[in-house]
């Protein structure tokens, strides 16, 4: 018995909202990175759920590519985090203000 697709969508929305909550409330850059990952994984759940819904494999393959893209994003993000810590001795995202606006 397959789970109906709307529950997958609800799950992915909950995951996306948790990620958005983290981005809106946290100031630690590491938690930012984790929140972005949560939002990306919400998109993955949607892709796979609708691949099953349409009986098509495209969404599943696309979710694999999204995971690879997330890995690349984390690599760059952790590099930026290192530079942030090296320059400001902190990973608080509100401290570096020179590139704001």
């Amino acid at each position: 018995m397959a789970v109906e697709v709307q529950y997958y969508v609800l799950l992915s929305m909950a995951l996306f909202s948790i990620g958005l909550f983290g981005i809106l409330t946290r100031r630690n850059a590491l938690l930012f990175l984790m929140s972005v990952e949560l939002m990306l994984n919400a998109a993955n759940i949607n892709l796979i759920a609708f691949a099953f819904y349409h009986g098509n494999l495209t969404g599943q393959v696309f979710a694999l590519f999204t995971m690879a893209l997330a890995a690349a994003e984390v690599a760059i993000g952790l590099g930026i985090l290192l530079v942030l810590y090296r320059n400001f001795r902190d990973v608080d995202v509100t401290v570096p203000t020179t590139m704001r606006w």
């Binding site: 590519f65 690879a68 893209l69 890995a71 690349a72 994003e73 690599a75 760059i76 952790l78 590099g79 930026i80 290192l82 530079v83």
Partner: peptide
């Protein structure tokens, strides 16, 4: 394309770190 992007991300991470 994803292979190239991952490679570029690896290089970027090394440059940043």
């Amino acid at each position: 394309l994803i292979a190239v992007v991952l490679d570029a991300a690896l290089d970027g991470a090394i440059v940043l770190a």
